[in-house]
Design a protein around this nucleic acid. Structure first.
Length: 110
DNA sequence: AAACTGACTAATA
DNA sequence: CTATTAGCCAGTT
């Protein structure tokens, strides 16, 4: 092992994962929103970066995070995007004809 | 240590 | 609608 520092919680990623895990089934959240809840307002990119680096072993519902337009990101890779959509629809999320989620209805608002 | 990268957002044109 | 600009910053090379 490379012996990375093991901050039980100073790690930006762990905080992001913790927030994402709190998103209830059947609801979605945006990168900016997750960043805000993780105490990282204005750092939405870091949220996306964290999810990109996410491991399969984690029980983080990464699929519940979409961009501020209510659309699935990663358009360069349509296949994983399709998987994400599939997972969300299985949870009850509805996409319109343009593949957009109505955030006013499905966005997680605790 | 400096450059590069990137699942983003908002504002502007 | 598309394109551009700017802000943001951890991780990788």
């Amino acid at each position: 092992m490379t012996g990375k520092q093991d901050r039980s919680e100073g790690s930006v990623y762990d905080r992001i994962y913790a927030v994402v895990t709190q998103v209830p089934r059947g609801q979605v959240s945006t990168y900016g929103d997750v960043a805000r809840r993780a105490g990282l307002e204005g750092r939405a990119r870091q949220v996306g970066y964290a999810l990109h680096a996410l491991d399969e072993g984690r029980d983080v519902p990464w699929q519940r995070i979409v961009n501020a337009s209510g659309q699935i990101s990663r358009r360069g890779e349509p296949e994983p995007a399709r998987l994400q959509r599939n997972l969300l629809e299985a949870e009850g999320i509805v996409f319109d004809a343009h593949g957009v989620i109505d955030l006013g209805r499905f966005a997680w608002r605790p």
